[in-house]
Design a protein around this nucleic acid. Sequence first.
DNA 1: TCTTTTCGCTACCTTGAGTATCGATACCTG
DNA 2: CAGGTATCGATACTCAAGGTAGCGAAAAGA
Lengths: 191, 191
Amino acid sequence: MTSPTSARPPGRPRAGVNAAVFAATLSTVQEVGYARATVERIAGAAGVAKSTVYRRWPTKGALIVDCLLDAFGPAPLAGGSRAELMTSTIRWVAAKVGEPGVGDAFAGVFSDAVSDPALREILSTRLQDPYRIALQEALDEPENRVLFFIDVVVGVLLHRMGMTGEPMVERDVDALIDMILPHFTEGPSRA
Amino acid sequence: MTSPTSARPPGRPRAGVNAAVFAATLSTVQEVGYARATVERIAGAAGVAKSTVYRRWPTKGALIVDCLLDAFGPAPLAGGSRAELMTSTIRWVAAKVGEPGVGDAFAGVFSDAVSDPALREILSTRLQDPYRIALQEALDEPENRVLFFIDVVVGVLLHRMGMTGEPMVERDVDALIDMILPHFTEGPSRA
DNA sequence: TCTTTTCGCTACCTTGAGTATCGATACCTG
DNA sequence: CAGGTATCGATACTCAAGGTAGCGAAAAGA
C-alpha cells in the first residue's frame, strides 16, 4: 500500500466543489443542451475556474460519467420476486433518465462514446459494470442476458429521449415492463 | 407552380458525385470513427472539394442523414403474417446497422441530434417518419405503438453498438425478436 | 517560516464546422 | 459563336470548444 487511507496528502486540500460542479453540469445541460454545455460554462455556473475542473477530470466525458454516477447512485435492488426486482429497476432507470439534465447528459456522453473508444471504456467500466454486476447477482442471470436487459432498458429510454427530446411517458414505460418481463420470467431459454 | 418538373434549371449541371460522397462517408466513418470523420476528410476520400459537399448539404448532420437514407433504402415490407413482417423488419434493421460504417454513422448522428433540435427534426422527419408511416400501414397499428416499436428495435441495436463498438450478434437479435413478437401479437392492449 | 498543493485567471494551441471568394468549367439559349 | 448562369476545386478565413501551460495567491501541515 503506497498510501494508507488515514494518510492525508500534504499541500492545500481540495475544496468541496465536486457537488457544485455536478449540480452545475446537470442544470447547464438542461438549460442549453449537451453540445452547448461547454466545460467553461459549467465551471462558470459552478463558480469555479475551468482549470479547476480539468484538474479533477481529465476530459469532459469523464466529468459527465462521474456526474451521472453521482446522479444515479446505488441501484435500489430491494428484494422481492424477480418480476418485482426487474419492474422496480426499470422504473428507477426511467425515473432517473427523466430527471432534469440527466437524460440529456446520458444521451450526450453516450453519443460521444460512439466514436471515442477511451470514453467508451470509461462508460462501460465505471457506469455500466457496477450495475451489471449487481443485477447479475440479484437476478441470477448470466452476463450476456443482463447485458441484453440493459441494452433494452437503456437503449429504449435513450432512443425516445434522443428522438423526441422528452423522457418516455409512464404509459410507455408500462409497455416496456410488460414486454420485458415475460421474456425474462416465463421462458428463460427460448432463444 | 414556380418550377415544373420538366424545367431544367440553367447553369452548369451538378456532377453525379452524391454516390461517391455517400460511399466515402461510410468508409471514412468505418475507418476513423464518427468524430474523426470530418467533412474535409470525407470530401477528400470522395475526390471532391469540401465546398462542393457544403453546396449540397447544409450541415454534416444532413449529409449523414441522407447517407443513411441511401444506405437503408426502402423498407422491404414484403407481405405475410404480422409476425413475419415484424421479424423480417427487425432482421433488416439489424443487418443494416451491422453493415460497415452504417451503425457508427447512425449512432453518431443520433448522438449529435440529442443536443441539436434542428438535426433532431431532420432525423425524425426525413429518416424515421417514412419508415414509421410505412409500418403503420403494414402493421395496422396506431402511431404510438409503432413509435414504441421503433424505439425498441433501433434503441437496442444502437445501444449495443455504442457500448461495445460491435453490432449485435445474431443470437441476441433472435432474443430481441423473441421478446418483441409476443408483446405485439398476443396481447395488443395489455398495458 | 517553509513546503506542498490547490485555487482563479489568462493566454494559448489545435481541431473541426461552416463561410466567402475566385478563377475555371459545363451547359443552355439566342 | 457569344452571353448567362450555376457548378467545381482551391484556398483562406471565422468561430467555438476541448484541452494545456504558466502565473501569483491562498490554504493547510511541519
